[in-house]
Amino acid sequence: MASITDPNTSGMFTNAMEDMRNKLLKGLGEISEATSELCQTHRHFLKSAHDTCLKKCKDDEMLFETLRTFEKDLQQKTTSLKEKRSATSEVKAEIQQKETQKEDIIQKIEKLKEEQAKRQELIHSQNRANKDRLRNLQKARVVFEDHLGMEIRKILSKTQLVKGERLQFVFRNIDPSRPDSAYVVTMGIKGDGVYQIVSSDPALERLPALESRLQGTNNLAAFLANVRKEFIAQARR
């Protein structure tokens, strides 16, 4: 081993230390350059990450704004739908009420039709009865006017109790002492087609009974014949 006092040894040591120093400096330079590159890369990475985060935040804000808009629209549509449902329920209730009213009106119309049909049948029945009575009157007129000298007059009553057209049957040749004297029975037909005796001149006691029989038989000729007999019997008393 060389002595440290050897001048060559000192130079070698110095050279060795210088080489070591140069290597260290070179290593440190390389480390510094690597560190600088790493720092630069890191700064680029941080800037890129920052930009990405900013863009992501903006995108998220736009997304949230869109969601808030959708939520607001949804609330409005929900409110509108509730209002429409309420209006629909009211319309349905109104339709049901009108359907019920329609059924009631239809039933009333059917009832009116039935009543009208009954009234028409009653009118037809009364017309037939009146025609039968008119034929009886015509027959009675022929019998009594041509054979017994009876006169038939039409009169129009304006009193409060008896209104409308009435017939007067004027009998003559009742009293032999006064053949031209008039014996009168006034009668008409009620709304239901029943004969109605209004009065007689002179008054006959049995007139109500004769009227009742006439209403039961509708035989006007027999009624007039019986009235004439009553007038004759009363004139001979």
Rank of each mutant, 00 (worst) to 15 (best):
G216L: 02
S200C: 07
V184T: 14
G27T: 03
V143I: 08
L28P: 03
D132F: 12
M62T: 01
Q126V: 06
G27R: 04
D180W: 05
N22F: 09
K229N: 09
A222C: 06
G216A: 05
R166G: 05
V198G: 08
H42K: 11
T35M: 10
L54F: 07
E71A: 12
G193M: 09
I174M: 03
D6Q: 14
D104T: 08
E151P: 00
L28N: 06
R119K: 14
P208I: 05
K229F: 10
S36T: 09
S86R: 15
R237I: 13
K56L: 07
Q40P: 00
R141W: 12
A34D: 13
T66F: 01
T66L: 02
T41W: 02
D59S: 12
K154A: 15
T14V: 02
G216S: 11
L207V: 08
R237C: 05
G29T: 10
I123L: 03
Q138Y: 06
S181R: 11
R172T: 13
A87P: 00
K111W: 00
A140V: 05
C53L: 15
L24A: 08
C53H: 13
M187C: 07
S181L: 11
Q160S: 13
R68M: 04
R21S: 11
A233W: 10
A221S: 12
K58C: 09
M187G: 01
E18V: 03
T9Y: 11
A209N: 13
S36M: 06
D192F: 02
M20R: 12
Q120Y: 00
Y183P: 00
R85K: 14
G27Q: 04
K154R: 08
L122W: 10
G193L: 07
K102E: 04
V142S: 15
D6C: 07
T69E: 10
E121Y: 11
K108F: 00
G188S: 15
R85Y: 09
R128W: 02
S177M: 12
M187R: 04
M17A: 04
V227C: 11
K108D: 00
T35V: 06
L112H: 00
F144G: 06
Q101W: 10
A2M: 12
V142Q: 15
K190Q: 07
F169P: 03
T217E: 12
I232P: 07
Q215L: 07
A16P: 01
K139D: 02
T88D: 11
T78R: 04
A203Y: 01
L137Q: 14
G193F: 14
S36K: 13
L167V: 13
N219D: 07
L81E: 01
I155E: 12
V170K: 10
V91C: 03
K47H: 15
E18I: 05
F171S: 11
L112N: 08
K56S: 11
L112M: 03
F171D: 08
N218I: 06
H42F: 13
T66K: 02
K26T: 14
L214N: 09
N136P: 00
A222Y: 07
